[in-house]
Amino acid sequence: MTTMVATTVPTENRRRALQFVALGAKAVLFMLLLSALIWPDLSGIKGKASTARLIVYPVGAMVLPLWWWAYGRTRSRLHERFPWPADLLITLPWLIDLIGNRLNLFDTISWWDDAMHFILWGLLTAGVLIAFVPRTLSRGITTFVALGFGATAAVIWELGEYYAFVRHSEELQTAYTDTLGDLALGTLGALLAALILFQVHSRRAR
C-alpha cells in the first residue's frame, strides 16, 4: 500500500507539471499571436503569410483539446484523463516556430530552418502518436503510421507555404531544392519520433 501511494504521488506531480507547462506554452503562443496582430511589423512573420499563420497556429495548438472535448473523452483506448504530454508536444512546434520568426532566426542562422523541419516535425508526430495511436502497435506499424502522418503533414505545410507567400517572393528561385530538403527532414523527424516513442512504450510495458 505504501509503495502504491509513493508511486502515485510522483506520477500525479509529473502530470500536474506537464499540465502547467502545456498551458503555459499555449498562453505564450496566444500572447505572441496577439502581439503580432497589434504590432505586425515586429512580429517576424510579416510578408510570410502572416494572416494564414494567425489562423493556423491557434487551430493547431487547440486541435487536441477541441477533439478531446467533443469526442476523445468517450474513447476508452485513450487515457482516462486528458493526454497533457501529447498536448504539449503538439503545441510546441507552433510556439517554437513563432519564436524563431520573432527573433528572425530563420533568416539569420543558415541551418535553423532545416533544424526546425526535423525537430518540430518530430515533436508534432510524437504528440499525434501519443494522443491517437494505441501503444500496443508493433514497431513497424507505429513507424508506418508516423511516416504517413509526418510526410502528409509536411506536404500540406509546403503547399501552404508555396501558395501563401513563396510564389511571390525571392525564395521562388530556390524553392524546389528547399522544399525537397524540408520534406526529407520532416519525414526523418517523424521517423525518429516513432522509433523513440516505441522504445519508450516498450520499456514501460516490461
Results as ranks from 00 to 15, higher is better:
residue 5 V to C: 05
residue 5 V to D: 09
residue 6 A to G: 08
residue 6 A to E: 14
residue 6 A to Y: 05
residue 15 R to L: 07
residue 16 R to P: 00
residue 17 A to Y: 05
residue 20 F to C: 09
residue 24 G to I: 07
residue 25 A to M: 05
residue 26 K to C: 10
residue 29 L to C: 01
residue 29 L to R: 00
residue 30 F to S: 04
residue 31 M to T: 14
residue 31 M to K: 03
residue 31 M to Q: 10
residue 35 S to V: 08
residue 36 A to G: 09
residue 36 A to F: 01
residue 39 W to H: 11
residue 42 L to R: 12
residue 42 L to G: 11
residue 42 L to N: 12
residue 44 G to S: 10
residue 45 I to W: 03
residue 46 K to P: 00
residue 48 K to H: 14
residue 50 S to W: 01
residue 51 T to A: 12
residue 54 L to M: 15
residue 55 I to K: 07
residue 56 V to L: 11
residue 58 P to Y: 08
residue 60 G to S: 08
residue 61 A to Q: 06
residue 62 M to A: 15
residue 63 V to D: 01
residue 66 L to H: 02
residue 66 L to A: 15
residue 67 W to I: 04
residue 70 A to P: 00
residue 75 R to W: 06
residue 81 R to L: 04
residue 82 F to T: 06
residue 86 A to T: 07
residue 87 D to F: 01
residue 91 T to V: 12
residue 94 W to I: 01
residue 96 I to F: 12
residue 98 L to Q: 04
residue 100 G to P: 02
residue 100 G to E: 04
residue 106 F to A: 07
residue 106 F to Q: 09
residue 110 S to F: 11
residue 115 A to Q: 06
residue 123 L to A: 12
residue 129 L to M: 14
residue 135 R to N: 11
residue 138 S to F: 10
residue 141 I to K: 09
residue 141 I to R: 15
residue 142 T to M: 15
residue 145 V to H: 04
residue 149 F to L: 15
residue 150 G to I: 05
residue 150 G to H: 03
residue 153 A to D: 08
residue 154 A to T: 14
residue 155 V to N: 03
residue 156 I to W: 12
residue 156 I to V: 15
residue 158 E to W: 06
residue 160 G to L: 03
residue 160 G to H: 10
residue 165 F to L: 06
residue 166 V to M: 05
residue 173 Q to M: 09
residue 181 G to I: 05
residue 184 A to E: 04
residue 185 L to I: 07
residue 186 G to Q: 08
residue 191 L to C: 10
residue 192 L to D: 06
residue 194 A to G: 08
residue 196 I to N: 07
residue 197 L to R: 06
residue 198 F to N: 09
residue 199 Q to K: 13
residue 199 Q to E: 13
residue 200 V to Y: 11
